[in-house]
Amino acid sequence: MKVLANIFVFVFCLFGFTQNNQLFEEGNALYNQEKYSEAIEKYKAILNSGEHSADLYFNLGNAHYRLNNIAPSIYNYEKALQLAPHDEDIKNNLSFAQNMTIDAISDVPKVGFSRIFNNVVNMASRDSWAIIAIVGVVLFVLLFLLYHFSYSTSRKRFAFVTSILSLLIGCMALALAFQKEQLQKKDNPAIVFVQESRVMTDPNKSSEEVFRLHEGTKVQVLESYNDWKKIQISDNSSGWISAQDIKLLNIF
């Protein structure tokens, strides 16, 4: 029975993949015919089935961009970039879409050690740093054994020095892996999806307005309270916005 169940699951997944591939091709054909709204429906049907890919979000972003749907185009390009962070086509199209936004928010640049440290942390993913840490520790053990069992003075010296270096690299990589994980946990971006949204000092409509944001602007969600989200923009200004006015990027 277990074998039959596994076969059924495999056939079901294969059927779903084939169906989604057909929908994707149909969506692309509609896009090439400039039927962007119909193409969007095809792409959304694939998303509703639970399949996610950079190409799917990229094409969805392109279709929304053609219809001048600012927030959905930016949102889908950002989703595509999450799945393919080094894709230049996605980055370029995202820049074009961001040029349509109203809000001109200046980034607060990181300087000094903070900038250097963040650049080092972001050189690799959490898993990559973890793998480097494991390799460093394994090398340390092997080199330490070589040091312990070697009779040659020069070989013992070489094994000792390189084992210490391997251990230091492993420890540094482990620390960077933890730091990368912390940064990922804090990274909770969202896109403003309404034409204009009021950002308040407190999570209620009667509080004082701090500033206003417009569709397509990217924000960082810091915390939640009832139907409100505390957000921060790239110039470090913060406030509370209605949860209905934004759409989180980290939810698939």
Results as ranks from 00 to 15, higher is better:
2 K>L: 02
3 V>Q: 15
4 L>V: 10
5 A>R: 07
6 N>A: 03
8 F>L: 04
9 V>A: 11
9 V>K: 09
11 V>K: 07
11 V>C: 09
11 V>G: 00
16 G>T: 10
18 T>D: 04
19 Q>K: 12
21 N>C: 10
24 F>P: 06
24 F>R: 05
24 F>M: 13
28 N>E: 15
29 A>Q: 15
30 L>Q: 10
31 Y>D: 08
38 E>N: 03
39 A>H: 00
41 E>T: 08
41 E>C: 03
42 K>E: 12
43 Y>H: 01
44 K>M: 06
49 S>V: 08
53 S>I: 11
53 S>E: 09
53 S>D: 11
53 S>T: 13
60 L>Q: 02
62 N>G: 08
64 H>R: 03
66 R>V: 02
70 I>Y: 04
70 I>N: 02
70 I>L: 01
72 P>W: 02
74 I>H: 04
74 I>D: 01
76 N>F: 07
77 Y>W: 06
78 E>T: 05
79 K>W: 06
83 L>C: 05
84 A>K: 08
85 P>L: 05
87 D>Q: 07
87 D>T: 08
88 E>Q: 09
89 D>F: 08
89 D>R: 13
90 I>T: 03
90 I>D: 04
94 L>R: 02
95 S>E: 15
96 F>W: 09
97 A>K: 00
99 N>K: 12
100 M>H: 05
100 M>N: 06
100 M>Y: 01
103 D>P: 08
105 I>P: 00
108 V>N: 15
111 V>A: 15
112 G>F: 02
118 N>W: 09
118 N>T: 13
124 A>D: 10
124 A>C: 08
126 R>Y: 00
128 S>R: 05
129 W>N: 02
129 W>D: 06
131 I>N: 04
133 A>Y: 03
135 V>S: 04
135 V>Q: 05
138 V>I: 12
143 L>W: 08
143 L>Q: 11
143 L>E: 08
145 L>K: 07
149 F>W: 10
150 S>P: 07
151 Y>H: 12
155 R>G: 00
156 K>N: 10
156 K>Y: 05
158 F>K: 09
158 F>C: 08
160 F>L: 15
160 F>D: 06
160 F>S: 10
161 V>W: 11
161 V>D: 11
164 I>H: 09
165 L>F: 12
166 S>Q: 00
167 L>S: 08
167 L>K: 04
168 L>D: 11
168 L>F: 13
169 I>A: 14
170 G>D: 11
172 M>N: 10
172 M>W: 11
174 L>Q: 10
175 A>H: 04
176 L>S: 07
180 K>A: 13
182 Q>T: 12
184 Q>D: 15
194 V>H: 03
195 Q>D: 12
196 E>V: 05
199 V>I: 13
199 V>C: 02
199 V>G: 03
199 V>S: 05
201 T>E: 15
202 D>Q: 14
205 K>T: 13
208 E>T: 11
210 V>C: 06
213 L>I: 00
213 L>Y: 02
214 H>P: 05
217 T>K: 03
220 Q>W: 00
222 L>P: 14
225 Y>N: 12
229 K>E: 14
230 K>D: 07
235 D>L: 09
235 D>T: 07
239 G>L: 09
239 G>E: 11
240 W>E: 06
240 W>N: 06
242 S>G: 14
247 K>E: 15
248 L>H: 02
248 L>Q: 14
248 L>S: 13
